[in-house]
């Protein structure tokens, strides 16, 4: 699983961090998404899919 995020579209809702805290974080000052791991282990795949689905700006793309 490879993950791509589009920081320019991010609206800093933090939904991704709530879903998959080992994979996503937010910048301190403006809350924009930070990708901690662009190739997470299979055990986190469901959390990442959940994060991608719940993102209100659809900035997370998963390449399986």
């Amino acid at each position: 699983m490879k993950i791509i995020v589009d920081q320019d579209k991010c609206v800093a809702s933090g939904q991704c961090v709530s879903s998959a805290p080992d994979v996503f974080d937010q910048r301190e000052d403006d809350g924009i998404v930070v990708l901690l791991n662009d190739n997470p282990p299979a055990g986190l795949a469901d959390d990442v899919r959940q994060a991608a689905a719940l993102c209100p700006a659809l900035v997370i793309t998963i390449v399986e």
């Binding site: 800093a12 933090g14 961090v17 709530s18 910048r27 809350g31 924009i32």
Partner: peptide, 11 residues
Amino acid sequence: NMPKQIRLHKQ
């Protein structure tokens, strides 16, 4: 203007 912190408050 506190997007990261508000998520923690919500949680």
